[in-house]
């Protein structure tokens, strides 16, 4: 009887690992429903971006972006600078006014490309965990040094810590995703 367990457990494991991408997609879609469409995530952004998709990149005080070092620069889908908001208490850039994106990674790559290389994204592909973003706008996490063990680019979805990585993030209309440096 116990000898059946050996082959059966391996077959079960193969089935579970093979269906992992499907299971992940299912729970990620489910998790996306819990991301509140809070209006406040658009606070400080141009009013014409209301109901449009936006990505913001915030840089730490220790490592400001050479171009976006004062206030937060607002860039439209054509790459035109709409304005700079100095009241957001951080520095960086937002690219917004997009519609119709469902996959977080697609949106991030397309939107950051609009800034013409100033916000280019560097990432490595992990076979299990998907894309791991290590560089945005020339700032590699390894360059962020201080009184902590390490730093990483941390993803927020509508103002809240994202439960899933950018590769698994499902977007809906009016979503704001933002990246800033967090430490551990």
């Amino acid at each position: 009887m116990s000898d059946i367990i050996k082959p059966a457990s391996i077959i079960l494991l193969v089935i579970v690992v093979a269906s992992l991408p499907f299971l992940q997609d299912s729970v990620n879609d489910e998790a996306a429903k819990f991301v509140s469409d809070s209006e406040s995530s658009h606070d400080g952004l141009p009013t014409e971006w209301e109901d449009r998709q936006v990505i913001c990149i915030f840089f730490p005080e220790s490592n400001p972006h050479p171009e976006f070092s004062t206030g937060v620069t607002m860039i439209d889908p054509d790459g035109e600078t709409i304005g700079v908001n100095d009241a957001l208490n951080s520095t960086g850039a937002c690219v917004g006014g997009f519609e119709g994106y469902e996959h977080g990674m697609d949106f991030m790559m397309d939107a950051t490309r609009v800034a013409g290389g100033l916000l280019s994204v560097g990432y490595t592909m992990d076979p299990n965990w998907g894309p791991f973003v290590h560089t945005i706008g020339g700032l590699n996490v390894n360059e962020v040094q201080g009184d902590f063990n390490g730093a990483y680019w941390s993803l927020s979805h509508n103002g809240e810590y994202s439960m899933v990585g950018i590769g698994d993030l499902t977007m809906s209309q009016g979503d704001v995703i933002s990246w800033d440096i967090a430490t551990w």
Binding site: S2, K6, A8, S9, L12, L13, V16, L23
Partner: peptide, 13 residues
């Protein structure tokens, strides 16, 4: 679930 199923394999073998 993958961890749990993997444990089942290691337990069996």
């Amino acid at each position: 679930l993958v961890h749990a199923t993997g444990n089942l394999v290691f337990a069996a073998w």
